[in-house]
Design a protein around this nucleic acid. Structure first.
Lengths: 137, 137, 137, 137
DNA sequence: TTTT
DNA sequence: TTTT
């Protein structure tokens, strides 16, 4: 089990790229998440958390979000090894988003979007995922 | 382990009461949480989740939130048995909030508040909880 | 956003049923989740939380879990209105599971299972969901 | 809002240190968290997540956990900047634990421990946190 | 009894 | 109606 939920603001516009062979969309951004207390005497009071989105969610984020926007992200923590320029091994820890919810501009455009959603329409509407019948508990 | 995180809107103004003997503040409200998909053919598309806050958080919520406000709640699920008017036993399931974050009116007033916080000032500022030293990982 | 994570034990064997028209499997059970503190003077020290699983996950749970087993559940809170025998409206609050992880008997049989998984083999192995390429952060 | 929940096993015995001036206990370990699917063709199928505990929880973890133990952790993601040996700035992302629950050896010793708990007794019992009166919802 |  |  590996669950993360964050609420924060984008520190910059998101960046979209495409994987080399397969052309899959991947968007990255950093989320500034306020700590729930005032740091002692001028210390940093937010965490800057790297977030990665794939496929439809990558396109949705790249097309609809900009620096400063307030969002909620749910996903999981992923670690990976990579080679730095100097050839040494480094380890990165990132959040892989599987759901993003826009929290400001709530009047015009709101919605939660999941990792496998179709791209959102202008109406910012929701898409069916798996509506269930009534529950006979 | 018993963790809940919700984002939604108050269906009404919160209600504050005080426990009989000890006069402890307890505030209750219902949070409308949109489901991430369109229900098939006009079905209900939100869950209406009962939330309970205690003490300082109870006062904070009662004094600062009203019907329609967008918030994030973290807490836990609690169940309890009670007697209905007809004398039969009933079971209630509620979320006990230990943190509430105001998400709209983000410009004027924002903040996350925890179950044991002092009452918030008008500035909507944060209060120290347990700032830590640097981490020697 | 509507996220729940619980760790607890089944109070009884799970019950499986099938929806009337469509024959979709739905399994229900109650999870006893210990509170993180000792109740004052012999009060209840666990919450008894109703959990519902659908489809493959319903079958997996019904076939593999019994009273007393320790599991982790992730899902969401759902509320619904129903008619009691006396014709009055009642409201139920339940957790809809989308992932269940078996935590005891960890040597012989472990695994996390998601709402849309194929039914598990005897090996208790994992099934592909959406393995991703490397992340160019 | 910044919430993390992980279930996994320690990759090694935890390491305890004490902050320079103030002598506060801080324990670090890495948690191996299985991914919920089989990686394509022999790729890594777990994330290795750095976890940090402070004070009482640091001592509890250092004294009671060893390599291979299965635990649940709840906490938050924290990022920090540090200087590498070569003088360049690096960024680390870690989970700061505020609750740890032991999941194996459930017969002999179980319990959930919070960031501010007293040190656990041998009985592995729970400690009072904030038991509440009945809820007049 | 439900919010935007 | 509750589990270890």
């Amino acid at each position: 089990m590996n669950k993360v939920i964050l609420i924060g603001r984008l520190t910059r516009d998101p960046e979209i790229r495409y994987t080399a062979g397969t052309g899959i969309a991947v968007t990255t951004f950093t989320l500034a998440v306020d700590r729930p207390y005032i740091g002692q005497s001028g210390q940093r009071e937010a965490d800057f958390i790297p977030v990665v989105c794939w496929r439809k969610l990558a396109e949705l984020v790249a097309n609809n979000l900009t620096k400063g926007r307030l969002i909620a992200v749910s996903g999981s923590i992923q670690t990976r090894k990579y080679q730095a320029q100097d050839g040494t091994n480094r380890y990165a820890t990132e959040v892989i988003a599987d759901e993003v919810k826009f929290l400001d501009r709530a009047k015009e455009q709101t919605g939660a979007f999941k990792a496998n959603d179709e791209i959102a329409t202008d109406e910012g509407d929701f898409f069916p995922v798996d509506g269930e019948d009534d529950i006979p508990f």
